[in-house]
Design a protein around this nucleic acid. Structure first.
Length: 268
DNA sequence: AAGGGTTGCAACCGCTATTCC
DNA sequence: GGGAATAGCGGTTGCAACCCT
């Protein structure tokens, strides 16, 4: 395409922003608003590329930014949304007022992802014997979402760019649902989870043979549901109150909030 | 106290999508 | 319609702070 680089790097500052730079950028954005970042950088007299200015503003200088101290509620929400959306950090951040995609991504990679990894390595030891035969038959496939997603598995992840859709999907997954105890530690759960998704807004084209998505006859754990989502569908999905979903309800007695108590119905 | 290793996070990079002319 | 500019995203890197021996 012959696209020019976002900035010529000569003569531009890189690395950590100084207090003065922050002040200049903040004052300028307050005065003139966001957008046109390349011109903004020039006009504000900042020796930074526009991209860098945009990132600094969005991730650090915006007045509505909440920083640090991610609460347990927020962490649980991140886990739920990640399970649903995968590494769509910006979408996840959109559900957490004041949080940025970068912060959530970092938090996931340094905190939650680690817990999940520990959890999975622990459970994988225990289930090693059972899975040995399956591993011989199927190569381990990585999900499309990168390392963290590969660690967690993606059986409930809704891919927002896809080609096919379904009326109803019924997935029995052997994946371990994630539950946090009151000390924020991942706890063991029952291995079998039934997930059912129903949608009235997705397209109703040809019936889909879901067996084609299965990695193996009895190994749906890496199954990923692919939908072609209409704009209002994904918008509804992201605007709904996740706490109202049966899957995300506490169940009243245990503090658990995952799919271990029965089918998950997503009715749109 | 020192220095080597680890961690957390801000910033950068490369890419795609969208908008504008 | 095509190319450039801009916006936005997710993955990766660099480095300061912290921890451990």
């Amino acid at each position: 395409m012959g696209r020019s680089p976002c900035c010529s790097k000569e003569g531009l500052n890189r690395g950590a922003w100084t207090v003065m730079e922050d002040k200049i950028l903040t004052e300028y954005v307050k005065l003139h608003g966001e957008g046109k970042w390349r011109n903004l950088a020039k006009r504000a007299g900042l020796k930074r590329c526009g991209k860098s200015c945009r990132l600094r503003w969005l991730n650090y200088l915006r007045p509505d930014i909440k920083r640090g101290n991610i609460t347990r509620d927020e962490e649980e929400l991140i886990i739920r949304l990640h399970k649903l959306l995968g590494n769509r950090w910006s979408l996840i951040a959109g559900r957490l007022p004041g949080r940025t995609d970068n912060e959530i991504k970092n938090y996931w990679n340094t905190n939650i992802g680690k817990k999940v990894q520990d959890h999975l390595s622990h459970t994988s030891k225990r289930s090693n014997q059972v899975q040995t035969q399956e591993k011989q038959n199927h190569s381990v496939e990585r999900s499309a979402g990168g390392p963290a997603e590969a660690k967690i598995g993606s059986s409930c992840v809704v891919r927002t760019k896809a080609t096919k859709c379904t009326k109803a999907v019924n997935v029995i997954t052997s994946e371990q649902p994630i539950q946090l105890d009151q000390h924020n530690q991942i706890i063991e759960t029952k291995p079998e989870v039934e997930v059912e998704v129903q949608s009235s807004m997705v397209h109703h084209h040809d019936p889909v043979d879901f067996s084609q998505f299965m990695l193996g006859e009895n190994n749906p754990s890496n199954f990923m549901m692919d939908f072609e989502l209409e704009e209002n569908f994904i918008s509804d999905l992201l605007n709904m109150d996740f706490s109202q979903l049966p899957c995300f309800e506490d169940g009243g007695d245990s503090g658990s909030n995952t799919c271990d108590k029965g089918p998950l119905f997503l009715n749109f």
